[in-house]
């Protein structure tokens, strides 16, 4: 009797959730639907992280992206004008540039996939990853880590500046 494993089934299910939701984000006409589909993508990605034994990243993905970013996105959508309208839409703009960009990035990705050397790794017992991540962040990668927070701060200030009424007039 062969030992069938659920692992690939779960993987493909999660991958399907992720990809289908991502398509929903891109193709939905309703911006609110896009945001909700984004939740599916994020949760699917979190699931994939779990399969990679990266439990901390998975949980933080949900905590930060779903609990924080997605909520803020929904919040922003709710505050936009004419939110009561049923027909709020994110129409697709600039199809030709998009196609070019898709072709370029797609080409790069296909090339990357074909040229990468796909090594199989021994399946290891899942070990807690928090210590490693913490140490890496606060020793080896402390500069990028701090720089990232500066970038976020700049983005925050920029957002405030953009939405100030008196500056825009």
């Amino acid at each position: 009797m062969t030992e069938i494993s659920l692992f690939p089934i779960v993987f493909y299910a999660l991958a399907a959730v992720t990809v289908v939701s991502a398509l929903g984000v891109a193709f939905s006409n309703n911006i609110f639907y896009s945001a909700i589909a984004l939740m599916g993508t994020l949760l699917g990605a979190a699931g994939l992280y779990v399969m990679l034994a990266a439990d901390f990243v998975a949980v933080v993905q949900i905590f930060v992206y779903v609990g924080g970013i997605l909520v803020l996105t929904l919040f922003a959508i709710n505050l936009t004008s004419r939110i009561g309208d049923v027909s709020i839409s994110n129409r697709s703009l600039g199809r030709f540039p998009a196609f070019v960009a898709l072709a370029l990035s797609g080409g790069v990705m296909v090339r990357a996939i074909r040229e990468a050397s796909w090594n199989m790794v021994e399946v290891r017992e899942a070990v807690p990853t928090i210590n490693g991540i913490g140490n890496a962040f606060l020793t080896e990668y402390i500069l990028p880590f701090e720089l990232a927070s500066l970038v976020l701060l700049a983005a925050l200030v920029g957002a405030v500046v953009l939405s100030r009424k008196e500056l825009r007039d």
Partner: peptide, 28 residues
């Protein structure tokens, strides 16, 4: 007994707010 127990609980409960927002918007 998740290794990330408390973080897991807080992140999962943050799904509730998404549901509340969807409820608020979808009710029109």
């Amino acid at each position: 007994d998740l290794n990330l127990g408390i973080l897991y609980i807080t992140s999962m409960t943050s799904l509730v707010v998404v549901g509340i927002m969807v409820a608020g918007w979808a009710s029109n």
